[in-house]
């Protein structure tokens, strides 16, 4: 009985995760066209919107990281970005910056550090604390 329940739960999870992947694919197309139109901040907002921290599935997390990464790397003027980015995005952006820094890739780290400096000025140390202390809703 318990096993049956567990299996049903697992199937539910798989269906949910598939739905998330489909959504991320949709987002990915939108982000590409926004970047082509030189609207990187809009692209970043789209990438951060509906990012899937609640799921434990690594595939969903890394799929979303790839779209966020593309949008992040398209940002040229960091100051300009912050004048168009609402504070509600700060916490989730910080989490993705730390994910970027953990890749160890030179270009990604350069970009993440540049944004990290500005974001810390804008959002304060509290924002870093929230990114580091949250072990449940990881990105």
């Amino acid at each position: 009985m318990e096993k049956g329940k567990d299996r049903a739960k697992m199937v539910d999870h798989i269906v949910e995760d598939e739905a998330i992947i489909t959504k991320i694919e949709h987002k990915s197309h939108k982000i590409d066209s926004l970047i082509k139109q030189y609207r990187p901040v809009e692209a970043l907002k789209t990438a951060l919107d509906g990012s899937p921290p609640k799921t434990r599935d690594e595939r969903c997390k890394s799929a979303n990281w790839h779209v966020v990464h593309r949008a992040l790397m398209a940002i040229k003027a960091v100051d300009l970005m912050f004048s168009n980015l609402d504070p509600e995005y700060y916490d989730i952006l910080m989490k993705y910056l730390y994910r970027g820094l953990s890749t160890g890739d030179r270009q990604t780290c350069d970009q993440c550090l540049k944004i990290h400096e500005k974001l810390t000025q804008k959002a304060g140390l509290g924002c870093i604390i929230r990114a580091l202390s949250d072990t449940v809703n990881t990105v």
């Binding site: 916490d91 959002a123 304060g124 140390l125 509290g126 924002c127 604390i129 929230r130």
Partner: peptide, 10 residues
Amino acid sequence: AQSVVLRDLP
């Protein structure tokens, strides 16, 4: 419930 986000340390 209301959650208030702090700029500074906990």
